[in-house]
């Protein structure tokens, strides 16, 4: 840590300080302190109901802390419309998308510009250029006029990533981006996220229950189970004595850091 600080002071973009979030009278996150620096790729792991999604919603300002604070870009305001939030791109957990919803791929991506532009502004030429570039970035430009509902799950996920990129974010929040997608495509999606992280210098927070899938990609792993249990390099977090606090004693960590048993909570 000290050597790191001596090299250069990384800019902090997100800072939780003793923050507690309560959802319908039960704590979803308790006294979490966590700093995220510019350009980091952080994986957030934990069992179901451990507050993984809540931490992303907290960064978006959709939930507010009962005690403690949360700052983004050194701004602690509670205003959901604070302009800082437009610089956060978000890929929610795969919800129920109406497959017949009348929308093309391009229109889906263009929606990423709506919040940036604000009310009463029609999308202009610049917005279209940015949306096209975002489609290019995820390798889906050829699909721009396809009906969104006709795409496969993996392709839809890429389009949603493009939609988040169209916001021209500094921070990208990804909630279970690989759930419900076949294994080959999962890797393609993660490779894409890694490439975007490097090329666009994005700060990325990725929430997942799939520890093994994500650990080779991230700079840092954060282990949550309402409280923060571990926060560090994947090698340091993927230890039996650490993971067993959250997943129980049955969890096995192999010599090469492969985790068996922590991933049993498939939905």
């Amino acid at each position: 840590m000290l050597t790191n600080r001596a090299k250069e002071q990384p800019r902090r973009v997100i800072a939780f300080s003793n923050a507690t979030y309560t959802l319908s009278h039960t704590p979803a996150l308790e006294e979490v302190s966590l700093n995220i620096n510019e350009g980091e790729f952080v994986g957030i792991i934990g069992p179901n109901g451990s507050g993984k999604t809540t931490i992303l919603r907290a960064i978006l300002g959709l939930v507010l802390p009962q005690t403690g604070t949360m700052q983004i870009f050194d701004c602690a305001c509670e205003n959901l419309r604070c302009y800082h939030r437009a610089r956060i791109g978000y890929l929610p957990q795969k919800g129920k998308i109406d497959r017949n919803f009348p929308i093309t791929v391009f229109e889906t991506v263009l929606m990423g510009r709506y919040g940036v532009r604000g009310l009463f502004h029609q999308s202009g030429k610049e917005d279209r250029t940015i949306a096209l570039q975002a489609l290019e970035d995820v390798g889906m430009r050829d699909f721009k006029n396809y009906p969104f509902g006709q795409l496969s799950g993996g392709q839809q996920q890429r389009i949603f990533i493009a939609r988040a990129l169209a916001q021209q974010p500094q921070v990208l929040l990804l909630d279970e981006p690989t759930t419900g997608i076949d294994t080959t495509t999962q890797h393609t999606i993660l490779e894409l996220i890694r490439r975007l992280h490097r090329e666009l210098q994005l700060t990325i927070l990725l929430v997942t229950h799939d520890i093994n899938l994500i650990s080779p990609f991230v700079d840092r792993l954060v282990l949550l189970n309402t409280r923060l249990f571990a926060n560090g390099h994947p090698c340091d977090v993927l230890q039996h004595n650490i993971l067993s606090q959250v997943y129980g004693d049955e969890i096995i960590v192999t010599d090469n850091g492969y985790v068996i048993g922590g991933d049993s909570h498939h939905e």
């Binding site: 919603r57 959901l80 978000y90 929610p92 919800g95 889906t108 929606m111 709506y114 919040g115």
Partner: peptide
Amino acid sequence: FDQDMAESSGI
């Protein structure tokens, strides 16, 4: 299309 996504995009 998606109210959650709209909300989190600053709308």
